[in-house]
Design a protein around this nucleic acid. Structure first.
Lengths: 226, 226
DNA sequence: GCGAACGAAATTGTCAACAATGTCGTCATC
DNA sequence: GATGACGACATTGTTGACAATTTCGTTCGC
């Protein structure tokens, strides 16, 4: 039995795989907000049938990643700065809660893993490796939500991030922002380890709000949104 | 120009209309968790084409209302009690935040409207009209999120509620629970009117948690979930 | 009577052709 | 040169037919 590559060659990708492929393109900025997703182009590039491509569009539309207009097809949805604000407020509330819940109910193994990742991130700061930092950061936040025993929130946050996710890689974790984020993380971790749930929640909220503040400053420099 | 009925007779419903129809069926308990949604049945009952029905399924699947399995079609998704817990924790965080934001940035008109609805709900408690209470309650929560200037959260909460929404009508607001909810509302409203954002947030969180507690008790009496 | 193998019916997955609509360049007119 | 009507092309919407798979009742062997 071969793996996915073989299955892909035989039968073509499933609608879920096509949706993931489009997601990747959007996140890596190869598809930019406002861009039309022409069905035949996607078919050519993925090898999927038209039917599957359209199924993929529906899923992405429900995720808020693309907009579908009748007879005009799907196009990549951009987020206004105000929407980004709302989105970050929501994340602050959700991840703040998770930080508190993690403090109260995470397993010993999860707590140790959290420290490990934090240590690895510190190294990335010293050696100026923003890509690695971004990857670890995603893992860190995910572990927090999972350790808090709330996969529903994990799913929701993943969705919320979608429209701005492409910004988070590349321009986001550089220079001062890298150090700032690392500082926030230390604060959160300290509260968790001290079993201070309320403190962890507050620190996490502040961390997310800092991310928004940074995006705001970025926005004033270059208007990236539609 | 006739309205939607005429358009429906001419061209059949759009996939979004079909999705809404299915949503309604699920919420009113005519479709129960685990039930298979056979395509031809939906086609017969809505008049939509098969293609549109399947598009509707994809949307509902992304919303988490139905599950799609290959060659087995779509079936209504039920939520485990643990999932309901996670869901209510998320709601508590999000609506708590909205209560705080509403306190700080809602318009005068919104604040007055909030009082109006609260007064109408009090009447419903006195006259024991749970259906009306449920309707007003939904409006009240919605106004809070909108007045807080966060439509993203409004959308997310709507989605979060989907899997348990059918429980909220009928069995939910009756007897003691009705009075308890009204009491919570008074507390929230008082904090908002006193410009106490932190107090409003705390009260709202408590209110949502009370809803969860009630669902838990209900669950121990009858195991409604799958 | 019980369970496994079989097969018809029901159901979903896929595709290709055609219809409806939008898009954009062209040309006539003022 | 600007403007609007027209038409060819590009793109999406819709449908029906057929293939793949599951489901369920039947039959056969024990």
């Amino acid at each position: 039995m071969e793996d996915a590559v073989e299955a892909l060659a035989r039968k073509g990708p499933s609608s879920a795989e096509i949706a993931d492929w489009i997601r990747t393109q959007i996140r890596s900025n190869r598809f930019v907000p406002g861009q039309r997703l022409v069905e035949v182009d996607i078919i050519r590039q993925t090898g999927g049938s038209r039917f599957k491509v359209r199924e993929a569009y529906q899923r992405l539309a429900a995720d808020g990643l693309v907009e579908i207009e009748e007879f005009r097809g799907a196009k990549v949805r951009g987020a206004s700065m105000d929407e980004v604000r709302q989105l970050y407020r929501a994340r602050a509330a959700l991840e703040g809660l998770c930080a508190a819940d993690f403090t109260e109910r995470a397993s010993k193994a999860d707590r140790e893993r959290l420290q490990e990742i934090a240590a690895a991130m510190e190294e990335c700061v010293e050696n100026e490796r923003p890509e690695e930092f971004g990857r670890l950061n995603a893992e860190w936040h995910q572990l927090l939500m999972r350790g808090a025993g709330n996969m529903v929130i994990e799913q929701v946050v993943k969705r919320l991030n979608s429209p701005v996710h492409h910004l988070l890689f590349g321009t986001f974790y550089r220079g001062e922002r890298l150090r700032e984020a690392a500082h926030d993380h230390r604060e959160i971790l300290a509260a968790i380890m001290a079993n201070d749930a309320a403190g962890a929640e507050k620190a996490m909220r502040g961390h997310v709000e800092n991310g928004l503040k940074f995006l705001r400053e970025l926005d004033e420099a270059v208007h990236f949104h539609s």
